[in-house]
Each structure stands twice: as C-alpha cells, then as structure tokens.
Design a protein around this nucleic acid. Sequence first.
DNA 1: CCATGTATACTAACCAGTGAATATACACAA
DNA 2: TTGTGTATATTCACTGGTTAGTATACATGG
Lengths: 202, 202
Amino acid sequence: MADMARSAIPTRERIISAANALFYNDGIRGVSVDAVAAKAGVTKRTLYYHFKSKDDLVAAYLAARDQPNLALFRQWFAEADDGLPAQVERIFRNLARSARHPKWKGCGFLRTSAELANMPGHPAMKIGAAHKKKFEEWLRVTFASAGIAQAAQLARQILLLLDGSFAVVLLHRDPSYMETAGEAAHALIEAALPVRGKRRAR
Amino acid sequence: MADMARSAIPTRERIISAANALFYNDGIRGVSVDAVAAKAGVTKRTLYYHFKSKDDLVAAYLAARDQPNLALFRQWFAEADDGLPAQVERIFRNLARSARHPKWKGCGFLRTSAELANMPGHPAMKIGAAHKKKFEEWLRVTFASAGIAQAAQLARQILLLLDGSFAVVLLHRDPSYMETAGEAAHALIEAALPVRGKRRAR
DNA sequence: CCATGTATACTAACCAGTGAATATACACAA
DNA sequence: TTGTGTATATTCACTGGTTAGTATACATGG
C-alpha cells in the first residue's frame, strides 16, 4: 500500500524475486545479502526489515518456488490424456527442453540441500523436503487412482529418476539424460499398470 | 621425499586429507583455506606452496576420491556372483548402509557440482563429470558382457537411479530411498536380460 | 649455495548484521 | 480542517569478523 508510486510490486516481493534470480544462479553462499538488496533496488537495512536473517531469506526464496514448480509439472502431465506412462514421460521431456536453456542450473531445492547438507535443521531443508514429498505424494495418488497396487513404491522410483536426472544433467550439461530417465519411468509405469490391453499406443 | 622425519605422511597428502574431511562435510564455500591448513597442521603459506589456488585444492580433493570410490562399487558388485540384478542392487544396499552413518553427506562429486553450477568450466566439474562417466562406462561394459542389447541405455538408467538416491536421501535423510532405487534397478536389469530361464533365483 | 619447503605477518576486499535517524500513512481528537 | 501520535517502511553509516591470496624471510638437505 505504502509508496505505490515508486513501484507496482511490493518491496518484499521484489526482494524475493531478486533473491530467486541470484540464489538460483550462484548458490546460497555465493550470493551476499548486499547483492540481493542491490538487485532488488533497496538498501540492505530495508532487506533486514522484511527478513530477519539471510537464512530466513533463503527459506522465503525456496518457499516461493514450491507451488509454481508443482503447477508446472501438473500442467505438463495434463496436456494430453495419452496414458500414464506417456504423461509422466512428458514431464521429463519438458524438463529436458528447459535444461537446454543456458540459464538452467538444475533444481533449486536439491542444489540448496547439497549446499546446506551440514545443517539438517535449516528451514530451507524442511521446505525442500516438503516440496519433494508433495510431488511424490501427487504421483502416488495418481498411480493409485489408476489401479496400480505398488503406487507408493512406483512414485518413489519416478522421483528418484527425476532427481537423478537433475543431478546428472547439471554435472554433464547433457539434457539427453532426462529423456533416458523419462524412458525408464515409462517402462516402470508400464510394467506396473494393471489389466493391460486397453491402453492405446499413443 | 623431503622431511619424512616430521611425519610419515607427506605434507601434500595431509593437506588433501584435511581438505577431504572439511570440504565433504561443510561444502566448498563453507570451508576456508585457513581451516584446511589448520586441520592439516601447516600454515596457509605452505598450503599455497603445494596448491596454486583454492580451486586447485578443490580439484585435488575430488581427484583423490575418484579411484577409491569406484573400487568400492566394484567390490560390492563382486562380493557374490549371484546374477546381475542382485549384484547391482547390492551396490544400492551397501550405499544405504553407508548413508545411515551420521557423517554421511551424500556424494561429494554431486554436491560440489551443485555448489559450482555457475562455473561449468571449473576443473572440479570436469573431474566430477569424468568420475560419473567412468562409473557409467563400467556399468555399460558389464551389461554388454552379459549380452544385454541396450547396455548403454540401461547403464544410464542405473546411474540416474544412483545419483537420484544420493540427492533424495540427502534431502530427506531417509536411506530407505536407496533400497527403493536398488529395487528399481533390479527390475530394469531383469527386464533387459536376454534368454531368461538360466538365471538362478539367488 | 641453491632448490625445496615452511613460517610470520600482512593486505585489500568482502560479509552478515546493527544503531540511529528519517519518512510516510493513517487513525483519531480538537 | 488541522494537529498529533503511532506503526510501517526506508535510508546512511558503521562494526567486527572473515577471506583468498601474498611479500618476505628463514630453514634444511644435497
């Protein structure tokens, strides 16, 4: 409300947006609070008015990525109703396309957890863990609805392939690994599907 | 060679050992060169005599992990000749056991690549990529020797499951994901094996 | 006396967080 | 309408500590 003339976007959101761009690109410890403040166009003191510490800012950065990320996966999945294996594989194919953009730097949640591995209780770790659990649970429910008996186990396996492809593609800079992961996911889901025979090829 | 009386272990190796303990535990940017020098029992100036920069030290840290790591995987694989699916799954089971130790912090190569994601040309990235390529190639050759047609694709899939479990277990601190990954690997290899029927149950 | 190796002491930059002051908006009394 | 208090929001300037890397000197074995 205050000072709308200065900018249409509230200060707190501008700071989170700046934090997102910088933390995702350069890592948590690679970005100073001063740099975030400068990018957001505020002084550091203002940033510390809205966030009580850098750790707090990091947590807000990840929290802001949670829902948009999940929504994107659901959207890719729902783009066509061409069968569970194909729908899940499409997530991997779209991810591979994203990974070809030069600014892509893997999964922000996983990279943050790798960087803060020695601080298991860090708020950012909890947000990252919750995010991945949500995705896994969404897969599990989806599989269970399709009549798959081992839905929970299958959901975990797909999650492992997904996060594995984040890690491997980040290291090799070769997005084709994501397509390989998608094929493996396709095979595992296909093998777990019940009845068979009523599924169309495409 | 010089100054063997001071310590049985040469200075350079003591520094790498200290770097290994600290970098693996706290991450690259979380550890100062001073801290490594102190842990190694030398002054920082001595460290800079043996390594031209911190980046150089990081590269040496990862290079020192390369062979021992691969040897461990091969050892677990070869502990019994109980069939390809079981042999590969045993790697995952052993990894899960390792991950239950409190000092475990995931895969040093992947964590370093996550931290240095904005420096694709960093020597440490090249060493990490080469390490993972060696493991993937060892799997591929092993699968090809067993008469698997799609050996290269299958090797990639197993690698994705392995690195996925590193990432997920680090985030959730739940090593059971590694067992799930091992089961997925088992299923994928089983499905890819030729002839069938000549394989014993255990 | 020279190459190898180690130590003391330093620099220049950076970094997370803070103290004190100021500006603005709005509620409410005169 | 005007004045005033209070919570919100923002700035400048600073501190104490840390960091990667270095200039210089000293030691020691061959």
